[in-house]
Design a protein around this nucleic acid. Sequence first.
DNA 1: GGCAATGTTAGCCG
DNA 2: TCGGCTAACATTGC
Length: 260
Amino acid sequence: MPELPDVEVFRRRLVEATTDRRIEGVDVLDGEVLATTRAELDRALAGSRVSGTRRHGKQLYVGLGDGPPLRLHFGMTGYLTTVADHDEPPRHTRVVLALSRGRRLLLVDQRKLGEVGLVDSADDDVAQRGLGPDALDLDLAGLREVLARSRGALKPTLMDQGRIAGLGNIYSDEVLFQARLDPRAPAAEVSRGEAQRLHRQLRRVLERAVEGGVRDFPRGWLLHRRDDGARCPRCGGPVERFTAAGRHGFRCPACQSREG
DNA sequence: GGCAATGTTAGCCG
DNA sequence: TCGGCTAACATTGC
């Protein structure tokens, strides 16, 4: 689930849940997701209020007033949700933040590839991780530069967090499908017009996905057809599975041909 | 049982 | 130096 749009939805959810509420305590149900000690987490969170949030790519930073910001990363299966005090948290809940006035904010993560930690500052952490600009902050010139500098294929280039932060396996496929570009074409060979298309669709897909919130996506999206042989929503031809940089992707060979 | 799954990273190889 | 590939992390579902 968690690529840029998902993390943005989680960020908004967290803001909504913590507005006018204090964090009363932390309950770590599974310490494997912690990138800090329980004591430090407790010290930073208990009794504090959320003073601001920032998302960069797939990273979510939560400001806590004077204390160090919290960093949340969701791995492949993590998400944030809220429940009322009397409700049972879902299976695979790893960390529970008890909020004032009867609510709890939960980090749920089946595969435990997510991470919860504390950082000195969001800026420092972004720099330390070597993340590229957030995908929604990238202008056309920036995108063209990224493409020109890459010696790899389009899909792996878009997914490389050091070049552009936020796109993963699903949304890189979707963006390339909407832009009608072959995921395996060399990034450096993308023409000016193609780059323009890619930039437009990058923004459109991500913004629309954030709006969609909980899985409400347009019918014309490839997202619904992640099956070998499924029908392309654009031309009706068969969708094809391929491998690039060790990840499986889907594309429509007719719509996303090399010649565009 | 085998395989793959929306992420990241280390190590290896060309 | 760069990019691709594999394995590993832990767990579930097809």
